[in-house]
Amino acid sequence: MRIIIHDLGNTDFQKLFPQPLDDTMVIASDAKIHHCLGCFGCWTKTPGACVIRDKYGDIGEGFSKCSEALVFSRCYYGGFSPFVKNVFDRSISYMHPDFRNRYGEMHHKRRYKNCVDLLVFFYGEDITEREQQVARDLVKANAINMCWDVAGVSFSHGIAELEGRVS
């Protein structure tokens, strides 16, 4: 399965994906999303699921069923937009609370064994060179944390530049 996380309006999303999407889970900003409370209930109370039962409570489970993740996000300060970041913050049930060493650093143990290719499309009118560098490093760090592979990171001024480039 493929998962698409985006902060686009419906019209822009339709421009990128005009055809019906098969075997794809789309996580969009079409409902109220609660922010992560840092309670770790998704590890020690209801392992594998967020204790906040809004529309975004099972993102970790969604991640476990995908082999490709596409992220479309406005770039803020070299990171994701608040909505996309909120989705990732609410996804930590994907990992196990225990620690393992990876690349000489402490990270969380895997809960699932699926392999995921991560492809990130940042957009924004005035993304600086420094922001681009931080954003590239961020995607790399996210991939190490989740044991995913970075399939690509790109930057564009707006969604119009991406039309026809994704499918």
Binding site: C36, K85, N145
Partner: peptide, 17 residues
Amino acid sequence: FPLYVDGIPSHLLRCLV
């Protein structure tokens, strides 16, 4: 602030924006 998924927690990021 605490580090959330290699970055700024989303609620704080919204405040910063």
